[in-house]
Amino acid sequence: MSEMSIQQVLSQMRALQSDATGQPESTQGTAGTQFSELLSQSIEQVNNNQQQAAELSSAFEQGDPNADLTEVMIAMQKARVSFEAMTEVRNKLVEAYKEIQNMPI
């Protein structure tokens, strides 16, 4: 993953955090935010996206007249993309951990 991609993922994580907290992104201080809190909130947002997609999909399958196919597809794609982004972040964390672990003392 290139430096630009990492910055995009971090930007998306910050946007997810601002969505989750309901505060505008510009008023949040990223320096004061703990990494574990940011990661936890991002994981919760990914989980929420997946649950929402599953609920919409289930409602559509059951024939709910309020469930629109386009909304279902958008929710499913949003859940997929957020999960893939979280997987990439996890992979980078594992790579960084292995790199640190292999450093000579």
Rank of each mutant, 00 (worst) to 15 (best):
E84V: 03
N66Y: 01
K98D: 11
I105V: 13
E37W: 09
S5N: 15
M86Q: 04
R14S: 05
R90D: 03
M103R: 14
M4S: 12
I105W: 07
L56Q: 06
Q12S: 11
G63R: 03
I100M: 12
Q34N: 10
M1Q: 07
Q23K: 15
V9R: 14
N102L: 07
E61F: 02
S82T: 06
Q23P: 00
Q23F: 15
L93P: 01
R14Y: 09
E99D: 15
G22K: 14
N49L: 02
N91F: 11
G32Q: 12
G22R: 09
T21Q: 08
N91V: 13
E84G: 00
Q28N: 07
T33Q: 14
D68H: 04
V72K: 05
V81R: 10
E88A: 10
T21G: 10
I74F: 11
V72M: 04
T27V: 15
A96S: 14
Q50D: 02
E61R: 10
V46A: 05
S58H: 07
Q62P: 05
E55W: 01
M86R: 07
N91M: 12
D19N: 12
N47H: 11
S42E: 02
V9N: 12
E3M: 08
Q101T: 07
G32S: 08
M76V: 01
T27S: 15
M86W: 08
S58D: 09
V46K: 04
I105A: 11
M4C: 04
Q17D: 07
Q17S: 04
S26W: 12
L16A: 09
V81K: 08
N49R: 06
E61P: 02
Q52Y: 04
T87G: 03
E84L: 13
M1T: 12
S40R: 11
T70F: 05
K92T: 14
A31H: 15
M103V: 03
F60Q: 03
G63M: 03
K78W: 01
F83S: 15
S2V: 00
M76D: 05
D68F: 05
E25Y: 05
K92A: 10
T87Q: 11
E3C: 01
I100R: 13
S2L: 02
M103G: 02
S40L: 05
D19C: 01
N66C: 00
R80H: 04
S57A: 05
L39G: 01
R90H: 09
S18K: 04
V94R: 14
S11V: 06
T33N: 06
I43E: 12
I6G: 03
Q77V: 01
R80M: 06
F35Y: 12
K92R: 15
I100C: 02
S11G: 15
I105Y: 05
M86I: 02
P24G: 08
T87L: 06
N91C: 09
I43Q: 09
E71S: 10
A54T: 08
F35M: 12
N49H: 08
A85E: 07
A20L: 10
N91P: 02
Q34D: 15
L10R: 14
Q101R: 10
D64R: 02
S57F: 04
S40H: 09
Q45P: 00
K98G: 01
Q77C: 01
F83D: 00
E88I: 09
G32W: 11
Q62W: 03
T87K: 12
A53F: 00
T30A: 13
P24A: 11
